[in-house]
Write a protein that binds this DNA or RNA. Structure first.
Lengths: 198, 198
DNA sequence: CATAAATGACCGACCATCAGTCAATAAAAA
DNA sequence: TTTTTATTGACTGATGGTCGGTCATTTATG
């Protein structure tokens, strides 16, 4: 044998070393040569680790999403009320901390919409189910503790995807000026309707 | 002088004659040569009417959106209850009649997310404001007639973008199996909370 | 009416760029 | 020394977009 590199690790290394570039420019204005240079490898090497240009975004999204997932999981455990937890979820769409991930996510959604790439869809499905699972659990706990009405569960899907809708609207129009405010308003008002009044 | 063609009309003609091709394949797998052939013009002629490849999708979206806008406006006037009108809005996301427009819309959102094209954003903003304006009016009328609680207005933005969120989720994941059902469930349940009980 | 001049519509050969390939090279392991 | 693996940048094919030239029609002129 020769040099044995950890293919999985090196793939991550390459992805991470061009992350800033992709975040700043988006994948379709970047060339493979630029990416290879940023990663400090030859152009051909990129294709040893990635099937194509798009897979680089996929890998970056993968890494960052799993970090975010861990972070969110931890942060959720620190919240007290159901509403606080729901707001914690929505923070992804505006927080300064998640800015880079949002850029990558935007890129990733755009690619997923355009191509019907099965791996990308499978990954997005997994993410969706993961986050939406938590979201349901939170509401369910709220219902069981008597904090929320039973109907909350029927609205769960809709409330969950509302964030995504607001995010897309923010990014393709000028109609959403203050995303945090819009999300908070919605959450506050829907909780007003869903909370069990004593 | 020479032949004077109606540039605006011809632009529309070219866009429409390759509509089916774009709907079926998406813009990024198509080449300009294919598009030109479908439109029955030379490659150079395409660039007499369109700045670039993406603008073709823009033009198709423009034409179809304005048709849809007219159709929806008419259909809304035929609905009776507030809830029926809201459901009419959501039909765009699953109706067989709007299938082609949805494909183009998907493509268009994808392009808008990827590039930060000012003209595209301006157009999307206009569409958003148009539709959202109607949506608010409908809810407002519901409130004024005593059918809905005042809080409906605070939830308007969120309910409106929820459809978009559901549509994106449907298209980038396998998590949404029955879009109509999901939308209807949400609308039914939120109306349950918002309707003034007698 | 005939013909020349003018001009806009149209086009495809051409150009530059770039994603992706591959043959050659380097270097570690056996 | 031989085998295997990693790396690479020159190369290729495809394609988005340009440009010079041609064609068709209209208008001006004699």
């Amino acid at each position: 044998m020769a040099i044995i590199v950890d293919k999985i690790q090196k793939k991550k290394d390459i992805a991470l070393s061009c992350k800033a570039l992709v975040v700043a420019n988006g994948i379709n204005t970047l060339t493979i040569s630029q990416i290879a240079k940023a990663a400090g490898v030859g152009k051909g090497t990129i294709y040893e680790y990635f099937k194509n240009k798009e897979e680089i975004v996929f890998e970056i999204a993968n890494i960052m999403m799993s970090e975010h997932s861990q972070k969110l999981s931890h942060e959720l455990s620190e919240q007290k009320s159901t509403k606080e937890m729901v707001k914690k979820f929505s923070e992804f769409f505006y927080s300064e901390a998640d800015k880079e991930l949002r850029e990558i996510y935007k890129e990733f959604v755009s690619l997923s919409l355009m191509q019907q790439n099965p791996e990308m869809m499978a990954f997005q499905t997994q993410c969706f189910n993961n986050y939406y699972g938590w979201f349901r659990e939170i509401l369910q706990a709220g219902v069981e503790s008597g904090e929320l009405k039973q109907e909350a569960m029927f609205l769960a899907r809709g409330i969950f995807v509302m964030g995504e809708g607001m995010f897309i609207a923010k990014n393709v129009t000028h109609a959403i000026e203050n995303l945090k405010k819009e999300l908070d308003t919605f959450i506050d008002n829907i909780f007003e309707l869903l909370e069990v009044k004593k």
